[in-house]
């Protein structure tokens, strides 16, 4: 039995020409669990909470407090919270599901060969990439909304001096690097965990993989946390008003004051 490691998720079956990979399959299952859970929660909210409701409330309000502590109170936190919290809870559950014992052994015949039915959901670069792109697009939109389109493009393309042009190019590269590092961080960690577990199981099935499993559990939680916190940090950085605009505003206020004094 050889070790079969694939960077891409294995395709389970096709619906028409649409390939359903094992990660996509489980993504849909977790997605359904979340949606049904949300609907169930909405219909069963009580003034006097039960145990489950208490737990949910604690998780959500804790997450909200943390969001507020990073991005500041009020409207900003309220707007950003759904995206960030959904990312956190979704990634967390997705990362924890592989630790249900026994599922790694199930394989399925897909027409060409045996493929494992289960794969860690975040070990699918496509999904991670989608979430990263969501973050980056949100950040760009917020930046444009805060600093205005003119200043936004001026940040990247500046022809005033060679140094400024170079810095603008660096900024552009930085944005791309943000996407790459954010997505590959999560993907790399989870995929590496998968591979590590597979290799350890292949080499020594008993006891030895256990410490790695614990490490993987820690990684699963921390990566979910890191991904959402970095998203939050990027967004909160984008919401800060840039210096130039601030200066302009101050000038405007000053002139207004002067006019007011003259009047």
């Amino acid at each position: 039995m050889g070790l079969n490691i694939s960077l891409a998720p294995e395709v389970l079956f096709y619906i028409g020409t649409f390939p359903v990979s094992n990660t996509f399959f489980w993504f849909i299952i977790v997605w359904l669990i979340f949606i049904i859970g949300a609907l169930f929660l909405k219909n069963n909210l009580k003034m006097v909470p039960g145990k489950m409701q208490n737990l949910t409330e604690m998780a959500i309000s804790g997450a909200y407090d943390f969001t507020e502590s990073i991005i500041g109170k009020g409207k900003r936190a309220e707007r950003v919270f759904p995206l960030v919290a959904t990312m956190f809870f979704f990634i967390l559950i997705c990362n924890l599901i592989p630790y249900i014992p026994g599922q790694a052994a199930i394989t399925i015949y897909n027409g060409q060969g045996m493929v494992p039915l289960f794969r860690s959901i975040m070990a699918d670069y496509g999904l991670v990439f989608v979430m990263t792109i969501t973050t980056v697009i949100t950040v760009q939109i917020i930046t444009i909304a805060v600093s205005g389109p003119f200043l936004y493009f001026k940040k990247f393309i500046n022809l005033k001096s060679p140094l400024k042009f170079f810095l603008g190019v660096m900024d552009l590269i930085g944005e791309v690097a943000k996407i790459v590092s954010l997505s590959f961080r999560l993907f790399g960690n989870i995929f590496a965990g998968e591979v590590l577990t597979a290799v350890m199981l292949f080499l020594m099935p008993f006891i030895v993989p256990l410490p790695f499993a614990f490490l993987g559990l820690l990684t699963a939680t921390v990566q979910a946390f890191v991904f959402s916190v970095l998203t939050l940090v990027f967004i909160s950085m984008a919401t800060e008003i840039p210096e130039e605009k601030l200066k302009k505003k101050e000038k405007k206020m000053k002139t207004n004051q002067e006019i007011g004094q003259e009047v």
């Binding site: 960077l7 891409a8 998720p9 649409f18 390939p19 990979s21 996509f24 993504f27 849909i28 997605w31 979340f34 949606i35 859970g37 949300a38 609907l39 929660l41 909405k42 949910t56 959500i60 919270f81 759904p82 995206l83 919290a85 959904t86 809870f89 979704f90 699918d124 670069y125 496509g126 999904l127 990439f129 989608v130 979430m131 792109i133 969501t134």
Partner: peptide, 27 residues
């Protein structure tokens, strides 16, 4: 990496729906 544009779009839509549903019905 197994990237397929159709899967990406499907996942994006699903994720957007998830965010919306959680926001509306949970948070």
């Amino acid at each position: 990496l197994g990237l397929d544009l159709r899967i990406l779009i499907a996942q994006f839509v699903n994720f957007a729906i998830l965010v919306f549903v959680l926001w509306k019905f949970a948070y």
